[in-house]
Design a protein around this nucleic acid. Sequence first.
DNA 1: TTGAAAGCGTTACCAG
DNA 2: CTGGTAACGCTTTCAA
Lengths: 339, 339
Amino acid sequence: MATALSGTRQRMEDVARRAGVSQMTVSRALRTPDKVAPGTRARIVAAVAELDYVPDLVAGGLATKRSRLVAVIVSTLENSIFAATVEGLTRVLRDEGYAVLLGASGYSRGTEEELIRAALGRRPDGLVLTGDLHTPAARRLLQVSGIPVVETWELPEAPLDLAVGFSNHQAGAAMVHTIHGCGYRRIAFVGTAAEDDRRGHLRREGYRAMLAELGTGPPRELTLPVTVAGITDGPVALDALLATHPDTDAAFCVVDGLAAGLILACRRRGVDVPGRLAVAGFGDFDLAQPAGLDITTVRVSGLEIGNFAGTLLLTRLRGERVANAVHDVGFSIIRRSSA
Amino acid sequence: MATALSGTRQRMEDVARRAGVSQMTVSRALRTPDKVAPGTRARIVAAVAELDYVPDLVAGGLATKRSRLVAVIVSTLENSIFAATVEGLTRVLRDEGYAVLLGASGYSRGTEEELIRAALGRRPDGLVLTGDLHTPAARRLLQVSGIPVVETWELPEAPLDLAVGFSNHQAGAAMVHTIHGCGYRRIAFVGTAAEDDRRGHLRREGYRAMLAELGTGPPRELTLPVTVAGITDGPVALDALLATHPDTDAAFCVVDGLAAGLILACRRRGVDVPGRLAVAGFGDFDLAQPAGLDITTVRVSGLEIGNFAGTLLLTRLRGERVANAVHDVGFSIIRRSSA
DNA sequence: TTGAAAGCGTTACCAG
DNA sequence: CTGGTAACGCTTTCAA
């Protein structure tokens, strides 16, 4: 067997020479095997193996004007829920021969625009974004590019193109409905003051809407003076809650991290959960439950969003029409022991 | 201002026409601005902006034979520790104009080989892998490709090229040393029977080596009949431990998930931690601690591995030499209340 | 300082 | 079934 030297990139021409055919025939043997005589094909396949030949998709892409590349831009991978989306996406796309180009914007719209620009330079066949907040320049770039775009984790009013997500508003309302169904009547919402926390904002609106619908008194809202609420904010949240709305019997937290903190704070202070105070969260973060924090929460599958976004994109890339531009993957209310 | 039509991809030629220069001059204005007359340059820059022109890096790459692409193949992103590595990598590489091509092998060497083959077809300038276990064909492909390769999370004896990781053996030994330093003398190791769990195996060897060094009696090893030990294996592990080595005073678990399970099992059975049994883990998984499981553990920074791998790769891509092919990022022992 | 021509490695298209 | 030729959109090289 011939040994390919280190660093020696083989070209189609080399394979052709070795198989005693023209370069064009090699190309055909690789792309449309049944249009090549079996014997010829066999020789070519052998030559490919002997030389460890790997076709140059860059050159191929230039010729076909299709890169078989999909750019995926997420805010961060640290959040395992986005990681799941990316993983689902890569899997679905890989099966159809698409590769994923990854970018992390770090929650900055400006960075996202830069990443979009950089990605577009690679001539991807499609693009996937998280969220529906983009700079005007980014929107224009995407429009001009003419490739299918999927926005994820949100149900935009004016989607750029396609979208796969769920309704934070509906989910917020549904959770309140569930809590109410358990008999609680003085339900508070614990959120943050972050200006651009649209998701939290929508959840809160869902809370208000359902409260109004159920006719369960005025909203009891607690707004923590932090940008991102987490497990460490539990004690402060509990203090504030008991101070401002002492008769509250259930707290719906804008994220599970906060709910976890609240529950831990309750344990420390001897506040019975859910006896004295029921606690619900949002997000179903991975380890809270196994770690013994049995939080009633709203769950959305990141993997499902990724898978669906991939499928939608593939449909488009095949040239088929997509019936609904905006797809709602829904959510589940997970009832555990905290409420 | 001219409006670029949707789907109208602009070429350099279009920009050139608009600026009244040759295409070559546009190329120069973009890549080596100071080799173009200021006036000309200004007209070109204007034309670029007006047309929303984004250079085609695919075509450029074909011409220069440099793709400015780095392929990253991880086993999974679900594990947030790898996600951090990928995020660090993308950040470091992006700053130098490199994009990241992502693949998830799902812990299969065969899939990894496929992904490597697919990635190589994109002619990346570099490649990053997790682990040091690859099929022979994969190794050959990588050798032939002639591009720099970084293996991460491991310190391979025979690296393909470069490597960034830490020593599981050393870390295992260090943890035993720490536990011993706290006064415990009957230290057990709780691991799995998985054939290919090399990391766990190395940790166990570290455990044995340190035990021998300290002269602290014969090893007390518990091997769970599972492939991946997790939080649900706690009760079984505790039973087995108390049955086989009833006088054990400290348990070093091969992963934090298992340690968490063990601690929860202890709580349920009224076994005092660390009074009756100290428990230590490995990995410092994100939520155990905030969730109230205060596990003494070994911590390795995924972000640091990613950052360093990126830096190493960039050095190589710049054509500079790298002094040490294998880089050890080390680990930290985090002492918390469980031991 | 600018431009023309010749690739880069592949595929589309048309002949044979 | 097979092969030649012309793109693909850029950069390299050489001339002006």
